[in-house]
C-alpha cells in the first residue's frame, strides 16, 4: 500500500474495501485501507491473549515493568461532578505519583473533559505531563459533526495536546464506513498539532472482526493512537480486543513504516494486569512500542496499585491503601 500525501488532496480520491466503494472529494487523504476487511478468529485470538498472562514477570523485570507502566498511565477523571479542585489534585498526582519515591517517573498524561482543560493547563505547565481531553461529544458521539469539531477546537485552544475522540458507532454499525472515515479525518484536521486518539468503543462493536475493521479505518483516516473504550460501556478494555488492535497497528507499520499508538482504557485496575498488557505489546509489536509515546493505559485506580507494588519492592512491606494519595 502506498502512502498517500498528507493534507488536503485536490483530486478525487477513492477508498475501496471489500464492503464499500465510494468517492470522497476533496478529502484529507491519509492512508489506503486494506483491500478487503480482515477477519479475526475469536477463539484463537483469546487463546493467544490468555497466553501472555502466563508469563512470569519477577524481580527486576517486575520493577522495570511497573515503572514503565506508570509512565504510560493516562490518569483519568471523567465524571459529571469533576471539579477544578479534583483536576488540580490529579495533576499533582500526575507529576509526583508517590511523594515517598521521587525517582518514579511522572505519568504520561491526565485525561479530563474539555471544560477542565484550562485548569490542568495551568497546573501542568512545564511538567512534561501531557493534557488529554476527551472531545467530539464524548462518550456517545451522537452529535452533529459541527458540534463535535467545535468541541475539539475548543479543547485544543484551552491547552489540550491530545484529543481522545469517539467514533460514531451508530454510523459504523450501519455500514456507513466512509462517513466515519471522513469524520475522523476532519477531526484530525481540527486537532492541528494535538495528537489524536480514536476511541473505537469496542464494547459496542462486539465482534473482533469489527474491532479490526474499525482499527484499520481509524488508522487510515489519520489516528495517532487507537483506543479501546470510553470507560462508560462494559466490557471496556480486554486483552483480546487490545491484541486485535495491536495486530492492526503492526500490520500498518509493516505496510507503511508508520507507528500508531494503542491505548486500552477502562477495567485495568491491577499492576499485574498492566504487566500482562506490556508482555502483549512486547511480543506483538516489539520493543519499540514500550514507550508512553506509543502505548498508554487509560486508568485511574491502576496508579495506586502500581505504587503499592513498587513500595512493596522498596520497603519489603505492603502499605495500606490510605498510605497513597487518591488518584
Amino acid at each position: 500500500m502506498a502512502m498517500q500525501s498528507h493534507g488536503h488532496g485536490t483530486l478525487l480520491f477513492f477508498i475501496t474495501t471489500g464492503r464499500f466503494f465510494l468517492p470522497i472529494a476533496p478529502t484529507p487523504a491519509r492512508y489506503n485501507l486494506p483491500m478487503k476487511s480482515i477477519t479475526v478468529d475469536r477463539v484463537m485470538a483469546d487463546q493467544r491473549a490468555a497466553a501472555f498472562t502466563k508469563r512470569s514477570i519477577k524481580t527486576s523485570a517486575k520493577e522495570a515493568g511497573l515503572r514503565l507502566a506508570l509512565s504510560m498511565v493516562d490518569l483519568t477523571t471523567l465524571e459529571g461532578k469533576d471539579s477544578p479542585e479534583k483536576v488540580r489534585s490529579l495533576c499533582r498526582k500526575a507529576i509526583l505519583p508517590d511523594a515517598n519515591d521521587p525517582t518514579l517517573p511522572h505519568v504520561a498524561a491526565i485525561c479530563v473533559y474539555p471544560e477542565l482543560v484550562h485548569v490542568a493547563h495551568e497546573e501542568l505547565e512545564g511538567s512534561g505531563v501531557h493534557i488529554a481531553s476527551v472531545a467530539t461529544g464524548f462518550p456517545s458521539g451522537q452529535y452533529p459533526l459541527e458540534v463535535r469539531l467545535d468541541d475539539t477546537r475548543r479543547a485544543v485552544e484551552a491547552g489540550a495536546d491530545e484529543i481522545d475522540m469517539v467514533i460514531s458507532r451508530g454510523r459504523f454499525l450501519a455500514g456507513e464506513r466512509g462517513k466515519v472515515f471522513d469524520e475522523i479525518a476532519s477531526i484530525k484536521d481540527a486537532c492541528g498539532q494535538a495528537h489524536l486518539k480514536v476511541i473505537l468503543e469496542t464494547g459496542e462493536l462486539e465482534t473482533y472482526d469489527l474491532v479490526r475493521e474499525a482499527s484499520d479505518l481509524a488508522i487510515a483516516a489519520g489516528a495517532d493512537f487507537i483506543k479501546t473504550s470510553t470507560g462508560k460501556v462494559a466490557p471496556a478494555a480486554t486483552m483480546g480486543v487490545t491484541l486485535v488492535m495491536l495486530e492492526a497497528v503492526r500490520d500498518h507499520f509493516i505496510k507503511t513504516g508508520r507507528k500508531i499508538g494503542v491505548k486500552p482504557a477502562g477495567g485495568i485496575r491491577t499492576s499485574k494486569q498492566s504487566l500482562h498488557y506490556l508482555v502483549m505489546v512486547k511480543e506483538t509489536v516489539g520493543d519499540d512500542w514500550l514507550t508512553p509515546d506509543l502505548f498508554r493505559f487509560g486508568a485511574s485506580s491502576l496508579t495506586n496499585d502500581i505504587l503499592m507494588q513498587l513500595a512493596r519492592r522498596r520497603t519489603g512491606r505492603y502499605m495500606a491503601g490510605h498510605d497513597f494519595s487518591e488518584a
Partner: peptide, 20 residues
C-alpha cells in the same frame, strides 16, 4: 513483494524478563 518494514520490528532485549 511490496516493500516491507517487518524486519524493523524489534523483538530484542528492551524490558527483558528476569529468569523465572
Amino acid at each position: 513483494r511490496v516493500h516491507t518494514h517487518a524486519d524493523e520490528l524489534n523483538f530484542g532485549a528492551a524490558w527483558d524478563y528476569a529468569p523465572a
